[in-house]
């Protein structure tokens, strides 16, 4: 796997790439980067050209010029595809990355051949009877840099609250330090975007992946029903950050869908 930069009008986008064939573009969650797909890519690259980019303000890409919305991030993804000469790709998105993928599939359907939404989220109202999505306390608040270094421990708390193995906690933590105090902007963009009105407009073959231990697992059935002809794949006992923690199972779910729908 190689790392590289693409120069797009908005700045430099950092990405990871491996393999050849049909492009499969992997969009990460928040606050994170293409690193979350580092263990997934080797499974996909046997058959596809797997590409994972860092969104502006995350990982090693340039900062966003201002707090980007989901729509603005989606435009960046399309600019990135233009720069790499990719006309059409399979899009995979995790959490907020899935919202960018939906936005592109709806606004620029000619750029998306297939769509894979992993644990895409929304926050249902109580009267919807879906249950409640419970985030850990103060999970997405602004963290300022403090002279005593206590902000570092706050980032550690947020990284370790899911009970992941230590190496995964350290990876998640590094993402927060890299992104810095502006890192949470992407979480806020995600929270402000309700994907439900867009889902019925999706025309391409779509897979909805649900990891049952993900906080958003309770809404995946609804997401599936809103997308015409979509396939729901449930990964029993699958954790949040499934691409980091269960890369093989995650890649197998995707490859299973792609093989069937081709």
């Amino acid at each position: 796997m190689k790392k590289a930069y693409a120069d797009i009008p908005e700045g430099q986008i950092h990405y990871r790439i491996e393999g050849s064939g049909e492009p499969i573009l992997l969009l990460h969650a928040s606050v994170s980067s293409s690193d979350e797909y580092a263990k997934v890519i080797p499974f996909l690259s046997k058959k596809y050209c797997a590409i994972a980019m860092d969104f502006p303000g995350n990982g090693n890409s340039d900062p966003a010029p201002h707090a980007y919305t989901v729509e603005e991030h989606a435009r960046t993804v399309v600019s990135f595809m233009d720069t790499l000469g990719i006309k059409k790709a399979i899009l995979v998105g995790q959490h907020i990355g899935a919202k960018m993928a939906v936005e592109i599939a709806v606004k620029q359907p000619q750029r998306v051949s297939k769509l894979i939404l992993s644990n895409i989220g929304f926050y249902p109202e109580p009267e919807e009877g879906l249950g409640t999505v419970i985030d850990p306390p103060n999970y997405t608040g602004l963290v300022e840099i403090k002279a005593d270094g206590s902000h570092v421990m706050e980032w550690w708390r947020r990284s370790s609250c899911w009970g992941h193995p230590l190496d995964v906690v350290e990876e998640s933590f590094l993402e927060k330090v890299r992104a810095g105090p502006r890192g949470e902007e992407m979480h806020w963009a995600g929270e402000a975007y309700d994907p439900r009105p867009k889902l019925p407009l999706i025309k391409c073959p779509t897979q909805v992946i649900s990891a049952t231990r993900d906080v958003f697992s309770i809404v995946q059935e609804t997401v599936h029903k809103l997308i015409p002809g979509s396939t729901l794949t449930v990964i029993e006992n699958g954790p949040i950050d499934i691409d980091r923690v269960w890369p093989k199972e995650f890649a197998e779910a995707i490859l299973g869908f792609l093989n069937k729908s081709s």
């Binding site: 270094g149 570092v152 421990m153 550690w156 933590f173």
Partner: peptide, 26 residues
Amino acid sequence: LQKDGSHLMEWWRRSALWRHPLDITN
């Protein structure tokens, strides 16, 4: 690496020793 994150405070300590401005320590 420590489960309680205490290694981070050790790294912060080594960075803060030189009494640089906060952004440089970070």
